[in-house]
Amino acid sequence: MEVKVCVEGVQRVVCGVTEKTTCQEVVIALAQALGRAGRYTLNERFKEYERHVTPDERLLESLEKYGPHAGDVQLTLHHNGPPAEDVGGKPRISENQLYI
């Protein structure tokens, strides 16, 4: 399946999304396509409701909750800065931000 994500004002299409595809996998694919590592959040917006999608969420499962309105949900990728590293030099993952 294809998922549309707005990245820097341009709508991108991520192909090959399955029921097992996580939000983090989609973010990594988009970041690799852009050639830019860093901290990212993926936002889901439907009408006036907006939230951050968590890294381990299954994206299609989340969209299915909107039923026939799933096509009206807007996904937006936000670049929040360079990769954050912990003391050991490994990338960290928080609940609301995706690090690659």
Rank of each mutant, 00 (worst) to 15 (best):
E64Y: 06
R51N: 02
Q24M: 15
E44Q: 11
E19H: 10
E50S: 15
V17E: 05
F46R: 00
P83M: 01
Q32G: 00
E64G: 03
E57S: 08
G81C: 09
L98N: 07
R58Y: 12
E64I: 01
R58F: 11
K4E: 14
N43Y: 12
H78C: 11
E25M: 10
A37W: 07
V10C: 07
G89I: 07
G67T: 10
E50D: 11
Y49M: 08
Y66K: 01
D86C: 13
T18V: 05
A31I: 03
L98D: 02
E85W: 15
L98M: 15
I93P: 01
E2D: 14
T22R: 14
D56N: 12
K4W: 08
L98P: 00
N43R: 15
S62R: 15
F46V: 00
L60N: 09
L98Y: 02
A31L: 02
Y49K: 13
V87F: 14
S62G: 06
T18M: 04
E2P: 04
D72G: 00
Y66E: 03
V14R: 05
H52R: 13
V13S: 12
H78R: 13
V53S: 10
Q97T: 14
Y66A: 01
V5S: 01
H69T: 04
R58V: 02
L63N: 04
G89Q: 07
E50V: 12
C23K: 05
T41L: 05
V3L: 01
E57N: 13
H79Y: 15
V14W: 06
I28D: 12
S94L: 12
E2F: 06
L77S: 03
Q24Y: 13
I93H: 14
R36I: 06
A29D: 08
Q11V: 13
P68W: 08
G38N: 03
Q32I: 03
L30W: 01
H52S: 10
N43V: 07
P82K: 14
A70L: 04
M1F: 06
V27I: 15
R51W: 07
P82V: 12
G81P: 06
H52L: 03
V5L: 02
T54I: 09
C6G: 07
